[in-house]
Design a protein around this nucleic acid. Structure first.
Lengths: 333, 333
DNA sequence: TTGTAGGCGTTATCAT
DNA sequence: ATGATAACGCCTACAA
């Protein structure tokens, strides 16, 4: 049995109220009682019970984070940003791997409600209407990361996918590429799918280049799907000189395909990735990619919910992106 | 205000005890009251308050996981294993990034105690005596992952580092390598450092090969340190034909160094990694590495604490490892 | 089958 | 400067 505030009170001959005051640094006791009580606390190794505290304070100092896929550099970085900021502010974070599973997501939402978390962060996945509804009806402050939300109460934080995509393709075009393939994310993903393709079209048209449906393939952001998509793309478009991948991992998939086929990168084919996760700098050749400040986004998202929890407002924000130049793109000029 | 059990009781004209029974699936009420109460619960959108429950049940259905570095494939995979098993059993996991910081670790330990977590998982880092003492004095069931514990109450789960290291080097030797460099982890790390070097020595002596201090360099398991270590190693040992890296990321560091210097892998130099995280298969060439069942270890660790929480015993266990053969090692015969 | 009441560990309001 | 004491939301004997 861990000692309770009562034990401390009894052994030091004071009331629980006094002990509570001392423990919480509130005024209302003489230096002597302070000494005595403190001594007893040390002796017993007393620590306040946060559960009891939470019950009366009606807050848990805990937030829940919903992620579609826990094992990726993206998630890891994001979590690092969130956890760091949370710790600073005295919050704990509960991780919830939804595995992009609807049922699991809803279950976690309910669990978080029951556990009385003070806030919820939802990341990297299209916020289905069902989720948005659940989230708002829960009445728990929430923010979404790397995706959007139409619910006014739920701000989002992300980079402008279309603009970033536009920049990436423009980057390629400016270096002389005219036949550019794209490996997009999930086909109808309204967040990381469609907008990035829109960015491609935009850049193409700006340069008076034709948009060809055949130059697009779809993956699921993972390595293997990138390899497969590249295979289909390459077989169909032998004259392609560059490919824009919607994720770093898929870009590595195209690296592997090229390696197998003896296609030199960037010699024969230029590749640009998206996210700029840790693997981008570790690949061979180092991958040029659209950089998203992932960790910072986690940090900011945490700040946003904190603001909401405090009763304030929080505006959705677009984070800046940039092209991190490395060695996977060749200048054709 | 969220509805409480009292609200449900009042609106359905029964006592809170009855509502409690219904909510918890305990016997003791007529079908009619059941119907009525259930209806009210639906109508109000009532959900039990886990905090209050935890207070009376004295358990939180939550475990804390301490990790030295959150952003890596290793941590991500581990977390995935832990979270998956936890979810299955109705547990939540709180992530704690210690950043290998002593103070932070102790603070988290205290926090977890205050939050009344039912169990603690400590991963990938040498369990200092200070931590071990704190952990045992907390009186919370705990288990350590990918590291050892001398405390009898705290079981560990890991692979036999020395044996795995021995196998890796032997693998190299059997393929004709005689001048083998090693990039070890932190110099005095008694877990991932010393034992792996011991395995190297063992394999060397078994093959009557000399052990040379100059063939060892130290890193911190990260990519950059691998690159740097390789640089020192290569400059000192031009005739080296293979290197054994204590982590996949460091192995990628050597890949990069070789790429820059025009050293072909595995043509001129063979490389074998350790962990076999996701990046091993994504690298070019695909990295041959000692495979650790990371996710499974997380899962098993979770099972172990659950066993301890249930009042049972849990033996420390060594997980099997294997060499995942890919294309980074050349057979010299 | 159902209700009453005490208690889980704290905080906070009112007295004293 | 202190101490009762009533919540907080729920569970669980113990009664009825």
């Amino acid at each position: 049995m861990r000692p309770t505030i009562k034990d401390v009170a009894r052994l030091s001959g004071v009331s629980v109220a006094t002990v509570s005051r001392i423990v919480n640094g509130l005024p209302g006791y003489s230096p002597e009682t302070m000494k005595k009580v403190t001594a007893v606390i040390k002796e017993l190794g007393y620590t306040p019970n946060a559960v009891a505290r939470n019950l009366v304070s009606r807050k848990s100092n805990t937030i829940g984070v919903l992620l579609p896929q826990l094992s990726s550099y993206f998630a890891a970085r994001l979590l690092q940003g969130i956890e760091g900021e949370a710790r600073k502010r005295g919050y704990s974070v509960i991780v919830c791997n939804t595995d992009s599973n609807g049922v699991r997501t809803m279950e976690y939402l309910n669990l978080l409600r029951e556990k009385q978390v003070d806030g919820i962060l939802f990341a990297s996945e299209w916020l289905k209407e069902e989720y948005a509804d659940a989230l708002t009806s829960l009445g728990i402050p929430a923010a979404v990361i790397a995706t959007v939300s139409t619910a006014p109460k739920i701000p989002y934080i992300k980079v402008d996918d279309q603009a970033a995509s536009f920049s990436a393709v423009q980057y390629l075009i400016r270096r002389g590429h005219r036949k550019i393939g794209m490996i997009s994310g999930t086909k109808d993903d309204p967040i990381s799918g469609t907008p990035r393709i829109a960015g491609l079209k935009e850049a193409l048209s700006e340069a008076d280049l034709p948009f060809e449906e055949g130059l697009i393939e779809y993956g699921d952001f993972g390595y293997k799907s990138g390899y497969e998509a590249m295979k289909r793309l390459a077989e169909r478009n032998p004259s392609m000189t560059a490919v824009f991948s919607a994720s770093d991992e898929m870009a590595l998939g195209v690296f592997s395909y090229c390696y197998e086929k003896g296609i030199s990168v960037p010699g024969d084919l230029s590749v640009i990735g998206y996210d700029d996760t840790d693997i981008a700098m570790m690949s061979i050749p180092p991958l040029t990619a659209v950089h998203q400040p992932i960790q910072e986004m986690g940090k900011q998202a945490m700040k946003m919910v904190m603001e909401l929890i405090g009763g304030g407002q929080a505006e959705s924000v677009f984070m800046p992106y940039e092209i991190t130049e490395r060695d996977s793109v060749k200048n054709l000029h």
